[in-house]
Design a protein around this nucleic acid. Sequence first.
DNA 1: ACCCATGGCGTAACGCTGTTAACTATATGA
DNA 2: TCATATAGTTAACAGCGTTACGCCATGGGT
Lengths: 223, 223
Amino acid sequence: MGVSDRRTRHRVNLRREILDAASQLFVEEGYQRVTMRRIAERIEYSPTTIYLYFKDKAELFQAICEETFSQLTGTLERLEAAPGTPLAHLREGLQTYIDFGLQHPAHYAATFLRTTKGGEASHYDGSIGARAVDTLRQRAAACVESGDIHTTNIDMTTQALWASIHGLTALLTTEHGFPFVAPKVLIDHLLDVLIAGLRSQIAAPRTSPPRPAHTPKPFSFID
Amino acid sequence: MGVSDRRTRHRVNLRREILDAASQLFVEEGYQRVTMRRIAERIEYSPTTIYLYFKDKAELFQAICEETFSQLTGTLERLEAAPGTPLAHLREGLQTYIDFGLQHPAHYAATFLRTTKGGEASHYDGSIGARAVDTLRQRAAACVESGDIHTTNIDMTTQALWASIHGLTALLTTEHGFPFVAPKVLIDHLLDVLIAGLRSQIAAPRTSPPRPAHTPKPFSFID
DNA sequence: ACCCATGGCGTAACGCTGTTAACTATATGA
DNA sequence: TCATATAGTTAACAGCGTTACGCCATGGGT
């Protein structure tokens, strides 16, 4: 038994080695530029060995992303316990989300900037990204309950918030070369606008005019 | 001379054929899944012929994106002439931007979801994406001038708006499988919140508390 | 003590990719 | 008519993710 224990320990260790080496490479150079052969070179094994531990390159990368993202959800859930008003909690959650994306751009991109193929419609329940979004939803719901904000649909509001902070994170991490104002300032401003916008909906929940004609053609997407 | 005219006409035509065939394929299947060989097959030429007209796959795709995006900037500039308040103009501009992304997800993704490599920092001045953003800036500036909104930095506000609508566009086009509320509703809501948020800044330009400690590590990005 | 099965890993290869070098055929201008 | 330029093709290269297969040390059964 002790022998087979040592065996499985070795298995686990090698799996960890692969994860660590691959993670570092992915962060440094991005998904596409990293090859299975280069990962193998790092750990001084043959390329095919990786396939004994991971089905393919995508699964390897997803495993890494899930590990990284569990840090985010962990941080978000820990913030829950901290003192503060629901509105402050919400703001901190949004802030944390953005900061996370800026600190882990490769993993963030892999999880949320992946141009998924049209056919499959990957199952989202329990997905690592969905969990992070869900914590934001809880914060928003708390604000509704405390009367700080009002909305006709909490999911709608959560998704609008998510879209905004996702967009900022995506732009800041991918659009280098664009002359952005200082990130801190930009982030603060966006959060100001969003929260002010949500709060103002208390008084006037329907600001929008009955939307002009301007009907876009039904779009045919993919990738 | 007439002969060389015919020659160049042929050149232009073939270039068009390549652009059209490639565009259709890219839209249908996305950048990665389309190969030079398949494009060549479509137009019934050898793969290498494409390289007589475009430096490489990336340049071919960028040419397509620029054509498509010029439609967006064209639409945006035409909207300028339409009657309406500055605020309505701004909203229409944001709306148009999102609709465009939903109608041309592949081109949008190629232009704005491209995970650019860290080193080069592509020149953004005059870039096709930057032009679209610039029209949004003009609309926002008009709102400031008319007194509809207030901001300490028009670039900051433009970028915050851009980030939000980019995020929504990106999520709606890439995150299939996620249970979004109806796109129309979601878009309207986001625009409501954003514009309400900007308007409320007139009365209270500094809503944000002096930001809690929570300093994120300086991030080391790439990809 | 022997044998065989199993697990862990490497070698070689397949089919694919973007791209380039070298070649051919056609048509032009002198 | 001959040289030259142009437009296109064929063949190949280097690299990719991935798989089929062979090797060898170890472990348990007899």
